[in-house]
Design a binder for these strands. Structure first.
Lengths: 294, 294
DNA sequence: GAAATAGTGTCTTTTAGACACTATTCA
DNA sequence: TGAATAGTGTCTAAAAGACACTATTTC
């Protein structure tokens, strides 16, 4: 097997929910922001890019965490691999070629506010980004699409908030991410039925009306049935769909009176190959050997 | 930026549906098989491993296709990136470390049968695998999980079959992958309502009963709304969820009499992170520069 | 016409969504 | 006590699922 054949970089798309930019001086509905770094060198000097850096002697996810911490002292609550981008001509002119393993992350309110910024690192609202370096615009679009999908079938939304939050706040997160209003009554019922929230016993003061209860997120038991969480090292989530585990109990319908069954608040938006065959040289290894993965 | 820091390998989990092994001499219900390669060298010599090889001067998906073709003349109908595996100690003793970008693929009936096998390459039923090299067992389990999820919300099942197929055959695919029986009547209706099938006009002969109609898969229009299909180069699918695009037409219910609305035949099973902060050395680039991804 | 699967019709259950209404707090 | 949001109840619509039944072919 040959030696190294590519440079590996790790980048991260970090999402936070923050008030819309002052430009539109309307209701303070939050929108999605990402931190971007202004490049100091060629190629794409002076354009904005995702934070990241070369892979060190560490796990992939650790590289993502490390670069985020180094760049802006961020330690996101949620981190998941997005995709490995490695078209041969992705970063033209570089030799060896560059393959980027991209992660995406969510950070909560105050965490986002406490991020260390600077002349070259700033938050930008995703709905009005300037031209970006490399293929980073497309990567962000893809991460956004994943975010919107995943918000619908999993319980990541709370990662945008602090330890405790009201149902209205949580609903605001969903509404911002999905970009549509949700029925407050149904939202409440469905969230509570999902067993993923617990009352803290506190209420939120400082409003000029009835104080809402505060909740905290209740990790689902044995969520990581098999996959999803992966290596013992890597505490991060997997890209896939959390499917509301199917209850196989048919028969016996016994639903407490007046109780709404759990459901998922949400519904989907949507999207969906044969590869380029390639002859090329015969198998790459020792005599008689069929190549395998490593 | 330093030079290369890792060796990149590409492997693929290839799924095919084939009759259960003769051991159980019962009904010929098909099960899922994968081709595995017996390793000819250390580490893990003589153990089975996923087909693959080092990344060449090509796109990632092209490397997957190339190695499959070289190894067994396979050119799968469906190919999608699964995950990048890159724990620092994943392949102990190798320097530089190895990062594997793993793809998963589906092949049809006769395609699978025509695969070139040999002493070192053979199909194995996934439900009874011997110990495998590296972390390949876990990778296969993860790919299987993804397959089962994706079959539920997208139209990949037909990739296990040939150009044309009967509804009963298609249902068999779903039943094999999901490992549960489906109601034939509802399945039929839901598939037809999904607009993803077209009659070929032919029927399947050779049965000893009423000959069933043959259908072919009808690619969905504008499936690739935004993401999913990615680079212009890479014709392969993305990992995410194809959400049955929500019909926003509320109001106006106008359903042709007796017509069942489209639906998705299926329901889910299920499964569902903060990163390890890391100080380490300061930002990796030129003076005053904040590192970005490449 | 019996066996066997193809294919249709129709009812029930479950889930999602709309929306009216009551409750509680603060200014 | 009115403004304002919290929180509950209840109905309707749509989707999923069960299952009885008819249709068509071969032997």
């Amino acid at each position: 097997m040959p030696g190294t054949n590519a440079t590996l970089a790790v980048s991260t798309v970090i999402f936070a929910l923050r008030p819309s930019p002052p430009s539109s001086h309307r209701a303070p509905a939050p929108t999605i922001w990402v931190p971007l770094v202004r490049r100091q060198r060629q190629p794409f000097i002076d354009l904005l890019a995702l934070p990241g850096g070369p892979l060190g002697d560490e796990d992939l996810a650790a590289a993502a965490s490390r670069t985020l911490f180094e760049t802006m002292r961020l330690a996101p609550k949620y981190l998941e691999q997005l995709y490995a981008f490695g078209d041969a001509d992705r970063v033209f002119g570089s030799d060896p070629r560059v393959v980027s393993v991209v992660y995406w992350a969510l950070v909560g309110n105050e965490e986002a506010s406490s991020a260390r910024l600077g002349d070259n690192v700033r938050w930008h609202p995703v709905d009005s980004l300037p031209p970006l370096a490399f293929d980073h615009r497309r990567i962000i679009d893809y991460a956004l699409w994943r975010l919107r999908n995943k918000v619908e079938y999993s319980s990541i939304a709370h990662s945008f908030l602090g330890e405790s939050f009201t149902l209205a706040q949580l609903r605001e997160v969903y509404e911002a991410v999905l970009d549509r209003p949700l029925d407050a009554a149904n939202f409440r019922r469905d969230m509570l039925a999902s067993q993923s929230l617990a009352e803290t016993g506190e209420t939120l003061a400082g409003t000029r009306h009835r104080p809402p209860k505060l909740y905290r997120y209740l990790p689902q038991k044995d969520q990581s049935h098999d996959n999803n969480r992966f290596s013992a090292h890597d505490h991060h989530a997997h890209p896939d769909r959390e499917a509301g585990r199917r209850e196989l109990l048919s028969g016996t319908r016994e639903v407490a009176v007046g109780v709404r069954p759990a459901s998922s608040v949400l519904r989907a938006w949507g999207v969906n190959g044969r590869p380029a065959a390639n002859s090329g040289a015969p198998a790459g290894a020792a005599a008689g050997g069929v190549p395998d993965g490593e």
